[in-house]
Each structure stands twice: as C-alpha cells, then as structure tokens.
Amino acid sequence: MDAAECSRQLLTWFDAGLIEIYADPPDGTPRPRNRAEWQLWNNGYLLHVLPAEEARQLLAQPERWTQESDDGFLHLCRTDAGMADDAPWA
C-alpha cells in the first residue's frame, strides 16, 4: 500500500469515528511518583488528542509522517467506537 492509499484508508476510519490521533505528554513532564499520580496519568490527565480538523489535515498529508517533524511522533489509536465489537472496519 502506498502513502496515498494509506492516507485514504486512515481518513475513512477517521471520518467514521473509529480512530483519533494523540500526542505524548511534553518532554520534561515529571513522571508519576505515586499511585494517585499514576492513576491520573493512565486516565488521560496529560493526554492531548488532536482536534478533529488538525488530525484530518495530518491524515490527508502523508508527506508529514516523518521523523523530521513532530508530526512523525504522534500516535493513532482506536476511539471507543473503534473498540466496539460491531465497529465498521472496512
């Protein structure tokens, strides 16, 4: 699959609400030191999900998916809808 085909498929899943893009916490963010801080961390306290328009623009531009820019270090993940047993993956 070439980059354009990959982009089209990711956009299909994104538009169906099956995936989203998130960024790691900023460098220098202190790591959790105790159970309460780990729970906040794991519950998404520092999670930064890209706004829909930004995510869609990124998915439409595979030339940005490189390690030469911060865009190359973002992550795809399934949404709650994408995790459902009846999710329409196509």
Rank of each mutant, 00 (worst) to 15 (best):
M1K: 00
M1Q: 03
M1E: 07
D2H: 02
A4F: 02
E5Y: 03
E5P: 02
C6A: 11
S7N: 01
R8N: 02
L10M: 06
L10P: 02
L11F: 00
L11P: 00
T12R: 01
T12P: 01
W13Y: 15
F14I: 00
A16M: 00
A16V: 00
G17M: 09
L18F: 00
I21V: 14
I21K: 01
I21M: 11
Y22W: 15
Y22K: 00
Y22G: 02
A23S: 08
A23G: 04
A23Y: 01
A23N: 04
P25Y: 03
P26K: 11
P26W: 02
P30C: 04
P30D: 12
P30A: 14
R31G: 04
R31Y: 01
P32A: 15
P32R: 05
P32F: 11
R33A: 14
R35V: 09
A36V: 03
A36G: 09
E37C: 01
W38Q: 08
Q39W: 12
Q39E: 15
L40S: 14
W41Q: 07
W41P: 03
W41G: 04
W41E: 12
N42G: 09
G44K: 13
Y45A: 15
L46C: 09
L47V: 11
H48S: 13
H48A: 10
V49R: 14
V49Y: 05
V49A: 05
P51V: 14
P51C: 07
A52R: 14
A52G: 13
A52C: 10
E54K: 13
E54Q: 15
A55K: 11
A55M: 05
A55V: 05
R56E: 14
R56A: 12
Q57M: 13
L59M: 13
A60G: 12
A60S: 15
A60Y: 09
A60M: 07
Q61T: 15
P62D: 09
P62E: 10
P62H: 09
E63G: 11
R64M: 05
W65Y: 06
W65S: 07
W65G: 06
T66K: 07
Q67M: 10
Q67R: 14
Q67L: 11
E68A: 11
D70G: 15
D70T: 12
D70M: 08
D70W: 09
D71Y: 11
D71H: 12
G72T: 03
F73I: 10
L74Y: 10
L74K: 14
H75I: 10
L76S: 06
L76G: 08
L76C: 09
L76H: 11
C77R: 15
R78E: 08
R78L: 14
R78K: 14
T79Y: 03
D80N: 08
D80V: 13
A81I: 03
A81S: 12
A81N: 09
G82C: 02
G82M: 07
M83A: 14
M83G: 10
D86V: 05
A87T: 04
A87C: 09
P88Y: 00
P88F: 01
W89R: 06
W89Q: 07
W89C: 03
W89T: 09
